[in-house]
Structure formats: structure tokens, C-alpha cells
Amino acid sequence: MAFKIGFTADHKRTQCEESAYQARQHTDAPHPSVVQVYFESRDRSWTYYNDRFDLHEGDLVYVEGKLEGVRGRVVEISYNFRIKLADYKRVIAVADTAVHGEFYVAGSHFVTFDRAAIPAEKAALWFMAPDKPEDEYASGQDETSFPLSDLKAMKAPNPAVERGLAYFVKDMVRYLCVDGTKGRAIVEGSRAYEVNFTYCGGEVSGLTCSCFCGGSCKHEVAAMMQLKNTLELIEKNYAEVYRRSGYFAAVPKETLFSFTVDGMERGRLTL
């Protein structure tokens, strides 16, 4: 079963607001504003200064300050203001939740074979704040590999296997993609972590997770379980489409709709 899905959404505007909005669409320049941002995890709203983006109500954003790294939603915008900048923290990133493309049902997930539908860089901002300029990372990997058909070969400790299974069952692998041989997953528990791996000829290698846990962790276990399950469904139902593209991305049904539909007052869905 396949269907095309595409969303466009704006908040309702008065005639004057609509004229101002249309005028802003003709420039790529940010539109300075003071915005109210609601943080669901805190069940509170705070006010921030925005001088980097042309924000709209419903946008998902990240801010600096005490709530750095916590995702919030813009609920109110003011373009007429005079503030003391030292008293306000800024909006530092906005997530692009516009999705256009063809998706296929694959168990609890939607799968797309279109690289432009939900690129990994776009999906990452749905769950994780962008890196700061001063952030530095180091990584390394050995030459070990294991067959995806036998996840026991991961040699993950029992607690990691049990927790990873629970994450998999609860659809906490929020995003998964394989492009050629390079794979990437986002697993969300107490926070979101990124899992990277190489998949070639049924073998997985170079498996790492940003939780920096020694040995195989629950996020890696959950990601591999989801990879195995998704590839089995693709092979059963959409093998030729996958072979032609050499790419797939998978997102839980609930996740796709919650990010692309929730908070939107206009849109279109074609089945």
C-alpha cells in the first residue's frame, strides 16, 4: 500500500497580517520579533528575542539559555517591540517540518524511498538541537561486524538488549535511514541519541552511538531491531522500489503526523 503525502500550513491571519506576511515572503532576510515559546516538557511558555529567522506560529524552535537543547513551539509572535537585549535570550534554530513525497506503509512506520522527503539533516532537528560552533567531537571504530540476521552477534549485555527491545516495541526509533551503505538512526529515550552504522551485504559494521556508552548500548540494539524489521518489510513488499533508489528512510506513523500536522491549521493529505 502506498500513498502520497504533502503538507503546507499557516496560522490564520487577519487581512493586515496577511499583507505583511506576503510582503515578507519576497525576502530571505530574517524578520526580527519577540516570540512566546511553549515547552511541552515544562508545560510553560517563555519569551525570546528572534533576529535570525522569519518565524511563524507553530514553528518548532530551540533557544539559548537554561532551556538550551529543549524543543519548544512558537505560540505567539510580536513584530512591534522595544526591548533591552541583555534581558532576553535568543532563538537559535528552527526545525523544518514541511514534508512532501511518496510514503509506503511498513508495519508501524511510514517508509519513503525519496531522498528529498525527509533527509537525515532535517529529521535531526525534529529531535535534537544543532551543534554549537565550539562543539568538538572525536570518533573511532574497529573492524568488527555482525550479520543483521543474527543480532545476538552484537554481543550486547543483557540489560542493553532488554531496554533496546522495549525501545523498539514502543517505536522509540524515531528516524532510520540507509543511503547506499551508510545508515543513521535517531533513538529517543530520556533524550535523543544518534546511531551511525554501515550496512552492506547483510552485514553491519562501524556501529556507534552518541551516548558514548562503552560496548553496545540500548540505542544501538533498538536501531538494529528496527533496521532488521524495516528491511524485512521492504523486501517483502517494496523490494524493487528500494533496489532502484538504493535509499530508504523510515519514521513511525505517530511521529510523522505529530510533527507535520500537530499545530497546523491548514494542509493537504492525499491517499
Rank of each mutant, 00 (worst) to 15 (best):
residue 1 M to R: 14
residue 2 A to T: 10
residue 7 F to H: 12
residue 12 K to N: 07
residue 13 R to E: 10
residue 13 R to V: 02
residue 14 T to V: 12
residue 15 Q to A: 09
residue 19 S to T: 13
residue 20 A to G: 13
residue 20 A to I: 03
residue 31 H to S: 09
residue 32 P to M: 10
residue 33 S to F: 02
residue 38 Y to V: 08
residue 39 F to Q: 12
residue 40 E to I: 00
residue 47 T to V: 12
residue 49 Y to K: 13
residue 49 Y to E: 07
residue 50 N to M: 05
residue 57 E to I: 02
residue 61 V to G: 01
residue 65 G to K: 01
residue 68 E to S: 14
residue 69 G to C: 07
residue 73 R to N: 09
residue 74 V to S: 01
residue 79 Y to Q: 03
residue 86 A to F: 06
residue 92 I to R: 00
residue 95 A to D: 05
residue 95 A to V: 04
residue 96 D to G: 03
residue 96 D to A: 09
residue 99 V to N: 07
residue 109 H to Q: 13
residue 110 F to I: 00
residue 110 F to K: 02
residue 111 V to R: 14
residue 121 E to M: 08
residue 124 A to D: 07
residue 124 A to Q: 08
residue 130 P to F: 01
residue 131 D to R: 11
residue 134 E to W: 08
residue 135 D to M: 14
residue 137 Y to M: 14
residue 144 T to N: 12
residue 155 K to C: 13
residue 158 N to M: 07
residue 162 E to Q: 13
residue 166 A to H: 12
residue 170 K to F: 02
residue 170 K to M: 11
residue 172 M to A: 14
residue 176 L to M: 05
residue 181 T to G: 15
residue 186 I to V: 10
residue 189 G to W: 02
residue 191 R to Y: 01
residue 192 A to E: 05
residue 193 Y to T: 12
residue 193 Y to W: 10
residue 196 N to S: 13
residue 199 Y to N: 12
residue 200 C to S: 15
residue 201 G to H: 05
residue 202 G to M: 05
residue 203 E to K: 12
residue 205 S to T: 07
residue 208 T to A: 11
residue 211 C to L: 08
residue 215 G to M: 06
residue 221 V to W: 00
residue 226 Q to W: 01
residue 228 K to R: 14
residue 229 N to K: 15
residue 229 N to R: 15
residue 231 L to Y: 06
residue 231 L to K: 09
residue 232 E to D: 12
residue 240 E to N: 13
residue 240 E to M: 08
residue 243 R to T: 00
residue 248 F to M: 03
residue 251 V to S: 05
residue 252 P to V: 02
residue 256 L to P: 03
residue 259 F to V: 00
residue 259 F to M: 14
residue 261 V to Y: 10
